[in-house]
């Protein structure tokens, strides 16, 4: 035990710095794992390259249907002339799900009124980009529809 009246300033300073430093280190040590905890881990997604949508005759002309493409929605359209087209159904504006508007013969997003033509090109409203394209193949034997994600550059 010390009987010293005045405290050694060097020692006081050392303790102040030491304590503040430990506090800071503890804080960082706490914040980092908390921050990382709240960041959701990347989950393995089943990679889907194509989806079979069943017989072509199930799709009436001038209609559209949402289908599952992995964990994303896709939109398949059979236009009035019987041709099939498929797109990612995710609106390029703010992530809503688009639908085929049979009356206007184009694709519509109900959230903010964006429109795309039958080829997925953004024509009015807020969408900044065309919808992502998918290619549609009809299997020769079973007449079933196979939808495949297209690479961006392909036409």
């Amino acid at each position: 035990m010390t009987t010293q009246e005045s405290v050694d300033p060097g020692r006081r300073k050392f303790l102040d710095v030491f304590l503040a430093g430990s506090g800071l280190a503890a804080l960082i040590g706490l914040i980092y794992p908390i921050f990382k905890f709240f960041t959701p881990p990347d989950q393995e997604e089943a990679v889907v390259s194509s989806v079979n949508l069943g017989p072509a005759k199930d799709f009436p002309a001038n209609s559209g249907k949402i289908f599952r493409f992995g964990n994303k929605p896709g939109l398949i359209i059979r236009s009035a002339d019987g041709k099939f087209r498929a797109f990612s159904a995710t609106c390029t504006h703010l992530d809503c799900i688009v639908q085929y508007d049979g009356k206007a013969g184009d694709i519509w997003c109900a959230c903010h009124g964006g429109r795309y033509d039958i080829n997925g090109q953004n024509i009015s409203g807020p969408p900044p980009r065309p919808l992502d394209q998918m290619s549609v193949n009809i299997l020769p034997e079973s007449e079933e529809i196979l939808v495949t994600l297209e690479l961006k550059d392909k036409t």
Partner: peptide, 28 residues
């Protein structure tokens, strides 16, 4: 999550002015 957005979708009234502003902004 696999059905199109319903027509007439709107947020709560106190977000509506933000929603409407975003709707009227041009894409670029």
């Amino acid at each position: 999550p696999f059905s199109p957005a319903p027509a007439g979708i709107k947020p709560e009234w106190y977000f509506l002015f933000v929603f409407q502003s975003l709707k009227l902004l041009p894409p670029h």
